[in-house]
């Protein structure tokens, strides 16, 4: 999806691959596995430093969990990269039969709703000051947030082909790499 928007996208699995990045997407998957492998292969510490230094990062679903400072319902010993001052609950909706798709109003991305797919998704249970809430479900539960260089969604825009979140993220990267000149 990032390639279709003109970005040069590469997979990152090793610490030495981080230095060349202007931005990073942490996709869906299983957060407990991401945590284990990122620590086992020495990726976690350099990523934390890069996030602290302002690297733009967009996390979807498990990626959102990896960016959260606090995880509720984590497995024993599970850690995150952190950076987003929020609490998320893993797998907040229940089993797969409770997974769903819906249309979300997200004014920052325009008038048209965003079609969002939630797959064993987390929700944001609490946010600290400085975090912008971008989207909520009808019951008020928070499912998209932004804070400085970090963007997180509990759902998967890449599954539906809606490019607006990725476009929004690329703008964040461009603003950092090529600051506006006026």
């Amino acid at each position: 999806m990032l390639r279709s928007l003109g970005a040069d996208a590469v997979p990152v699995r090793r610490p030495e691959e981080i230095a060349d990045l202007d931005g990073l997407v942490i996709p869906g998957g299983e957060s407990s596995v991401m945590d284990k492998l990122s620590r086992a292969f020495g990726l976690a510490e350099p990523l934390k430093s890069a996030i602290a230094a302002g690297l733009p990062v967009y996390g979807t679903c498990a990626g959102l969990i990896m960016l959260a400072d606090t995880v509720l319902d984590a497995i024993a010993g599970q850690q995150t990269l952190g950076g987003l001052p929020i609490s998320v609950r893993r797998n907040a909706f229940g089993n797969q039969i409770d997974s769903f798709e819906t249309d979300l109003a997200i004014p920052e991305l325009g008038d048209a709703t965003v079609h969002a797919v939630f797959i064993r998704a987390p929700v944001v249970e609490a946010v600290e000051d400085g975090v912008t809430v971008l989207a909520q479900l009808d019951d008020g539960r928070i499912v998209a947030v932004e804070s400085q260089n970090l963007l997180g969604t509990a759902f998967h825009p890449e599954v539906t082909g809606d490019t607006r979140f990725h476009q929004y993220f690329l703008h964040k990267i461009r603003d950092r790499v090529l600051p506006p000149v006026d």
């Binding site: 409770d98 769903f100 798709e101 109003a105 797919v117 939630f118 928070i142």
Partner: peptide, 21 residues
């Protein structure tokens, strides 16, 4: 945070949701 409500209806058990996992 206050609750918005311009959201659409939700659907469970669609192919997209099943294949998505």
């Amino acid at each position: 945070v206050e609750t918005p409500s311009q959201n659409g209806r939700s659907e469970h058990g669609s192919s997209r949701v099943k294949r998505g996992l």
